[in-house]
Design a protein around this nucleic acid. Structure first.
Lengths: 204, 204
DNA sequence: CAGCTTATTCAACATCTGTAGAGTTCAACG
DNA sequence: CGTTGAACTCTACAGATGTTGAATAAGCTG
């Protein structure tokens, strides 16, 4: 049995390498965030030379940007929820949010985005631009008062939920059935969207 | 004027160097999290040789642990709020939470803890042990139902608020007056503590 | 003052980092 | 079938990183 050692050169057959690098990158950025994830590690996980990663993406930052593009449009989800039944938007959003996070497919990207948002300026800007502006737009379109403030409040509860349930995995929140969690959180979301959020009226 | 170049050896006078290293470490860990903060950078910021940091703390991880000890006891705050006026605990907690975060003194430690909790396993465990167990204990002591679930829900909104207002600095939440934010969030906290959080009762 | 402990620095280490350049192999197209 | 371009690897570099060991200077205790 002779073992052939590859020494450079294109591989025979179809070429899905770029995609598997992206997958490995997603996974790596997900676990620890931007800085701790290394190009070498990502390359190794993809069964590839580090230089190939450079060949495809040029540098670490664009690799990150490309790996971490959002799998869903939060603005669309919000708009649809508002359009369908304004007074139940909270329920719908909570359910959809949990559904997306619970699905293994999207989880990695989302985890990575949150992790990186906390440490990387670039990711933080991306968050603001992509997610928050979308939420705000949807709320404005629907004509609620103080759409910006409501949008950030909404984001605060959703992000906190993601942190507690998925990142820190605080029990029993982390393994509670999806509908239970949705029910617990929905009223808060609903109030942030269309309820009273001002001073001097502590009724809820 | 002759300039003396120090070449090792103790400095004359009192020695507060350890503390200034800790301060620099807090600041560094705060800005970016565990990994990106470098011992060399911390040492430089403290005007000290990197080896001195090792001398005092042995390794990076214990330096981190020592720099990032919590400045407040969340359990105590919660207990006091519950004892004073159970049906206004939400308001009190929201106010206290914002007050602590808004104070420059504690802010750095808290920022660092949250940032690191997201990426570092050790910090995440610290969070669970120190903060959450305290909250849970206080809720149990007060006799509410499902104290663990309520505790994590409470933590989720508070963490989300910290993320949105202090870490991502989402406007207008970030610069809204403290009482306004407290008023917006208090009802949610109150409901998580003593309100209805179950299914099949979507009234709020 | 002698002697021990502690604070402090210097120089060096092994390792890892992102990245660059040149070379090799394959696929696609004329 | 020859040429071009893209996929792919090797080797290397320059810089940063955590950590170590020895050397020096000051304080503390006797």
């Amino acid at each position: 049995m002779v073992s052939f050692k590859r020494r450079g050169g294109r591989r025979p057959g179809a070429t899905d390498t770029r995609e598997s690098i992206l997958a490995a990158a997603r996974e790596a950025f997900t676990r620890a965030g931007y800085r701790p994830a290394t190009i070498r590690g990502i390359a190794a996980a993809a069964g590839v030379d580090p230089a190939l990663v450079m060949h495809f993406f040029g540098n670490k930052e664009t690799l990150f940007r490309e790996a971490m593009t959002l799998p869903v449009e939060p603005a669309a989800v919000l708009s649809r929820a508002l359009a369908t039944s304004p007074d139940r938007a909270g329920e719908v959003i909570a359910a959809t949010f949990l559904e997306i996070w619970d699905s293994a497919a999207h989880r990695d990207s989302l985890l990575g985005l949150v992790r990186a948002s906390v440490t990387e300026q670039a990711a933080s800007d991306m968050f603001r631009a992509t997610i928050l502006d979308g939420i705000e737009h949807a709320l404005t379109e629907f004509g609620v008062s103080q759409p910006r403030l409501r949008g950030t409040l909404l984001a605060s509860q959703l992000m906190g939920l993601a942190m507690a349930r998925y990142i820190l995995a605080l029990e029993p929140l982390a393994s509670a059935p999806r509908p239970d969690v949705a029910a617990a959180v929905a009223p808060t979301l609903q109030r942030y969207i269309s309820g009273d959020i001002t001073r001097e009226s502590p009724r809820d």
